[in-house]
């Protein structure tokens, strides 16, 4: 597995430099603007998987380098496992870097202690797993163009929903309800008492989501022709 992780890191080194620069700017912004812990946690839960799954996979597509990767002495299942493991390594590296950065420069001591709570870390793990489990299979199946089309489709859906809402005069709509549901779910996760059963549930859920992500992504990757 080490040679695979090494390969991923070397092949994506340009992207890693960009990512590192982006993370530095993000943590400077968080620390200097006194951005809330909750926002930072949610933001990172979505941005880090987005970088790891979409960006690395998109780079492979851009250079058509899947031909190279799939021609190496390995199999496709291992390639996907390596991508998932590398993604998590990068996610945790970015998180550790950010927390170290905050330890040095954050003026609000509560920020770091809240982030380092086991519950916060497990919620971060769960949300990142969820987003990664959506992104990785999606990018494998539909590629970079699929991501772009998906984002454009979401924008159009949003605009249409807003237009319909303003025309009907009704403040409630499906999109708003969905967003509220997500916010309420995250609030529930964050506000729940950190009982051992709850923490275990978070951990098991994250592990199950990752196991599903791995199997489903491998299934999709095995079916692709290059």
């Amino acid at each position: 597995m080490l040679k695979h992780i090494r390969r991923e890191l070397i092949f994506n080194q340009t992207q890693l430099y960009i990512f590192a620069g982006y993370m530095i700017i993000f943590w400077i912004w968080v620390d200097w603007q006194d951005i809330s812990f909750r926002f930072s946690l949610l933001f990172l839960s979505f941005v880090l998987p987005l970088f790891c799954a979409a960006s690395i996979q998109a780079r492979e597509e851009r250079f058509k380098a899947w031909t190279l990767n799939c021609s190496l002495p390995t199999n496709r299942k291992t390639l996907i496992l390596a991508r998932l493991v590398t993604s998590w390594l990068l996610i945790f590296a970015a998180l550790v870097f950010g927390l170290l950065f905050s330890a040095l420069f954050q003026e609000n001591p509560a920020f770091l202690s809240q982030f380092l709570e086991l519950k916060s870390l497990l919620i971060f793990l769960l949300l990142s797993s969820l987003f990664l489990a959506f992104l990785l299979p999606f990018v494998i199946r539909f590629g970079l163009s699929g991501v772009i089309i998906g984002l454009v489709a979401l924008q159009i859906l949003g605009v249409i929903t807003l237009l319909l809402t303003s025309m009907s005069g009704n403040k409630e709509n499906i999109l708003r309800s969905f967003i509220h549901s997500v916010i309420n779910a995250v609030k529930f996760l964050l506000n729940h008492d950190p009982t051992p059963a709850y923490l275990l549930l978070l951990l098991v859920s994250a592990a199950a989501i990752n196991a599903f992500n791995l199997k489903f992504s491998q299934f999709l990757f095995l079916r692709r022709d290059f």
Binding site: K64, A65, T67
Partner: peptide, 12 residues
């Protein structure tokens, strides 16, 4: 293997 279109990451 030697393919007709070399499949490398061009920026490396």
């Amino acid at each position: 293997f030697v393919y007709d279109v070399p499949p490398f990451y061009e920026d490396l």
